[in-house]
Write a protein that binds this DNA or RNA. Sequence first.
DNA 1: TGCTTAAATGTAATAATATAACAGTTGCGT
DNA 2: ACGCAACTGTTATATTATTACATTTAAGCA
Lengths: 163, 163
Amino acid sequence: MTVTGFQHHDHQACVTDGLEALGRFCRQNGLRLTPLRQAVFQILLSSHRAVGAYEILHRLGARGLSPPPPVAYRHLDFLVTNGFAHRIEKLNAFIACMHIGAAHDPAFLICRNCRTVSETDSDASMLALHHRASDADFQIESSVVEVLGICPECRGHEQGNAY
Amino acid sequence: MTVTGFQHHDHQACVTDGLEALGRFCRQNGLRLTPLRQAVFQILLSSHRAVGAYEILHRLGARGLSPPPPVAYRHLDFLVTNGFAHRIEKLNAFIACMHIGAAHDPAFLICRNCRTVSETDSDASMLALHHRASDADFQIESSVVEVLGICPECRGHEQGNAY
DNA sequence: TGCTTAAATGTAATAATATAACAGTTGCGT
DNA sequence: ACGCAACTGTTATATTATTACATTTAAGCA
């Protein structure tokens, strides 16, 4: 699996493909893709940076007052539950999934400076851990694999994180 | 590396050894082991369950009123910074380190029912990820590896989590 | 078609987690 | 004893997240 997100790329393709995949998956699985759900997904999809719930609220309410917190959390919950977005524990924030529809145990490379997150896969990484868990009679249900560091872009001009 | 924490064991030995290791490491590295720091560490050490900052405050103030939040966070910060405790991102909580003094990138097995956490090592698991990171020119600084599931004890009588 | 019901949304209140800021105190080397 | 740095005490506030319940929407079906 390749690591995307740090390199320069045609981000418009990420947006187009993401929305396409979201729509298709919902249609095929009888999930209701309401305007607000799609709006929250589009906000996540607008960059590869992790976005907090309150930033989403702020962007939703670009005109008029911001909607109250449960609005963001509800739609984020829908997205995360169905695998359309991932929660980044280390940042208390969220990103759009780049592999909608594919069953996967993601791993994330997170830039501590710009909050850009690259999604990759933890499968291979977790083999040894699965082994140890089964030795301990522990039944794995899900995993959080988050690697922190600094991305090539930020390493170039390491200074204040201007966000 | 072995996986401890779920099996029945002589927990008094964990406590004794933990305090011993903490004291020794501080002495050898010129760190001041003040009563409050030791008290917070002892609270963490009292079980292998992850303990939240506010639970620590509550236990610290067993008599009289609870101390204000910064007290807990300051001492936890000291413990985490020096490798005496680990933060469990998934639970916003903390556990005592079981390998004080040994440089390590820990991985955790976390029971979603009883919050018991077993500390093991992510070294081997992370090899593939290191590879991918270096392909992406991403410089790893630290990692969060948290596996969630259910421990043998809780699987036996799976029901409400009485904590 | 219109009824039923489950899902989704709107909204207020509040809980849980965490930090900023600054004043006071203590321990330690000189 | 002095001065500095580390540690502690305390107030206020920021940030993240949930509970609870009323209202509206929409899909399935008699």
